[in-house]
Nucleic acid binder design. Structure first.
Length: 450
RNA sequence: GUGGGUAUAGCUUAGUUGGUUAAAGCGCCAGUUUGUGGCACUGGAGACCGUCGGUUCGAAUCCGACUAUCCACCCCA
């Protein structure tokens, strides 16, 4: 393995053995988002650096030290997106999507980039599925977003996720809380760890999140945001919980949930798994009522969440969740001899036009090798095509799992007969042939054959 | 950015105190005589032992640096 052909640090190829699982998970996400009335938005992989500085926050680690930033040939500072919300907000403003009515409900499935050291559940290129809703101020919207994420996890069969929610208030009540928290922490300033000392000035709430044991002890009795919420924020938070209760979505209020991006207000939440390493947050999100205005738009309440695809797949792997996969090949045709090869190719094409997964030999291999190959790819049926079959205009369809053989005509009725045999087997559902309708009129290949 | 572990065929690993053509299993390819997969047997391809440098008559093995990877901190999905 030559060093120069290795993928860059923190990136990963998604190989055929895994891409099927990705697609199934993505399909479920798209479908569930659509069921909830969300439509896809696609924004550029890179944006002007300033966009992230202004939205994510220029004091955050994500912006300060984790962005892939470079100057393009026109001397513009460009950054690969470290998250999805900024670009979506930009697009909503640029195209005045709010003029199409509120709420605007958007989802995305995107790669993101952060220059970090890798570990389990953390790469430099990673993928997020995210949903954002603009123009929805009511607490039911918070619950609706959480419900959407929740139902995706349900459909994926993921167990043992805990949902933790909190309210970090609005700029008004948060200021008051910060003052109180700071006053409390000043008392034991000497015992805080180094990073928390700097946090004390910049963003004292993050200290609640610190994993250093001594800091944890100090903050145990620290004032919590919950007790400082203004009446509007408190009401909002209570209502969100009522809606969650009504939807029978289990959650715990964790006053220590603090999100690392600057734009959050009021409700914040995380879905956490114990089946991951240290990176246990599978999905995180919250409300960001101030962001749109801050970016130059009208005051627009908004909220959203993002889930990490890689982490999700890791959890599924840890929980031994396997998704049903349709077979790669429904019929493998094994020709013997030149004449049969041509015929096999023609049949394969015909089957393809009918949407049936068919393959024939591409390697000039012996019959035995072909059967081995058919077995390996999990072909549901095989059909040998040799001189005998061509002479009699009739071949045997072999069901690979049962070994059962059915005679099938090689004439006009081939496609109909194949579909009939295929739909009779137990595999029909798995083969996706249930609803198969074939327009036979379009296939004239048999008439052209001798 | 910080700390610790690891680096030998596609994968999982062996490789004895440094000593000749670096092993094995799985996988891959082919064969075990006439046209049928899974099992078994036989054979084959495939590794400059992560990279560069050093010690030595001699390095996969010892030393150093770099790179990658894994785990953790920080932070986040």
């Amino acid at each position: 393995m030559a060093a120069n052909i290795q993928a860059p640090k923190g990136t990963r190829d998604i190989l055929p053995k895994d891409s099927g699982a990705w697609q199934l998970v993505e399909d479920i996400m798209r479908d569930e988002a659509s069921v909830h009335g969300f439509e896809e938005i696609r924004t550029p992989v890179f944006e002007r650096t300033e966009l992230f500085e202004r939205s994510v926050g220029d004091t955050t680690d994500v912006v300060q030290k984790e962005m892939y930033t470079f100057l393009d040939k026109g001397n513009r500072s460009i950054s690969l997106r470290p998250e999805g919300t900024a670009g979506v907000v930009r697009a909503v403003l640029e195209h005045a999507l709010m003029n199409d009515g509120a709420p605007q409900k958007l989802y995305y499935l995107i790669p993101c980039y952060r220059y970090e050291n890798t570990q389990e559940g953390r790469q430099r290129e990673f993928h997020q599925f995210g949903c954002e809703a603009f123009g929805a101020a009511a607490p039911v919207a918070d619950a609706a977003l959480i419900a959407l994420a929740h139902s995706i996890f349900e459909r994926l069969g993921i167990r043992n996720l805990s949902l933790e929610i909190n309210s970090i208030g609005c700029p008004k009540c948060r200021g008051e809380y910060h003052a109180a928290l700071k006053a409390f922490l000043e008392a034991s300033k000497g015992e805080l760890c180094g990073t928390c000392l700097t946090r004390l000035e910049k963003n004292p709430m993050r200290i609640l999140d610190c994993k250093t044991p001594s800091c944890g002890e100090i903050t145990q009795n620290a004032p919590v945001m919950k007790d400082y919420l203004c009446s509007e924020c408190a009401e909002h938070f209570t209502a969100v919980q009522e809606y969650l209760d009504a939807a029978e979505i289990a959650y715990t209020v964790n006053p220590r949930i603090v999100r690392g991006l600057d734009y959050y207000t009021r409700t914040v939440f995380e879905f956490i798994s114990n089946d991951l390493g240290a990176q246990s947050t599978v999905c995180g999100g919250g409300r960001y009522d101030g962001l749109v205005k801050q970016m130059g738009g009208a005051q627009t309440p908004a909220l959203g969440f993002a889930m990490g695809m890689e982490r999700l797949l890791l959890v599924m792997q840890a929980q031994n969740i396997t998704l049903p996969r349709p077979p790669v090949c429904e019929l493998y045709i094994a020709p013997l001899g030149r004449q049969a090869q041509v015929k096999a190719f023609a049949f394969t094409n015909l089957l393809h036009q009918a949407g049936i997964k068919a393959e024939c030999d591409l390697c000039d291999r012996s019959l035995k090798a072909q059967m081995k190959y058919a077995d390996k790819i999990g072909a549901v049926f095989t059909m040998v095509l040799g001189d005998e079959e061509l002479k009699q205009n009739c071949a045997e369809l072999k069901h690979m799992q049962t070994g059962e053989k059915t005679s099938i005509s090689l004439g006009e009725g081939f496609l109909t007969e194949f579909v009939a045999v295929a739909t009779q087997t137990e595999d029909n559902a798995a083969m996706g042939l249930d609803g198969l309708t074939v327009d036979f009129e379009g296939f004239e290949i048999f008439e052209k054959e001798d």
